[in-house]
């Protein structure tokens, strides 16, 4: 229960960064923090207390080892999610660079004012 609440606080800090900050770099940082929080909460749901990593080390004791594994399904989904998050971050950074070239600033208020 307590780790879930801590994760939710982390998520909310990211949401605050996206909503309230005026700088585009801060908005990208908020996106990254939200991504971390979501990855972490899915892994926390799949954790079994005292569980072992889901890797089999010997053929004979495979079934005995398998009874102590943590949930491997969220891990398999999060591995892809982390790499997708990196490429989405790259896309956001590239958009920020283009906006900086066009307007000469990263402040969204100035960008909005220069429209048209």
């Amino acid at each position: 229960m307590v780790p879930y609440i801590l994760c939710m606080i982390l998520f909310l800090i990211g949401v605050y960064g996206i909503i309230a900050k005026k700088n585009l770099i801060k908005i990208v940082i908020g996106m990254v923090i939200i991504e971390y929080a979501v990855n972490l909460i899915l892994i926390l749901v799949g954790y079994r207390s005292g569980g072992a990593a889901p890797i089999i080390t010997s053929i004979e004791g495979a079934s005995r080892e398998a009874s102590t594994f943590v949930d491997p399904l969220p891990q398999a989904l999060i591995v892809t999610s982390i790499v997708i998050g990196l490429s989405v971050t790259v896309l956001a950074i590239v958009l920020c660079l283009r906006l900086y070239e066009k307007y000469g600033t990263l402040d969204i208020l100035h960008i909005r004012r220069l429209r048209g």
């Binding site: 790259v90 950074i93 590239v94 660079l97 900086y100 070239e101 066009k102 000469g104």
Partner: peptide
Amino acid sequence: ALAIFRVRRE
């Protein structure tokens, strides 16, 4: 692409 890109101020 990020390394080659140069910011040109128009």
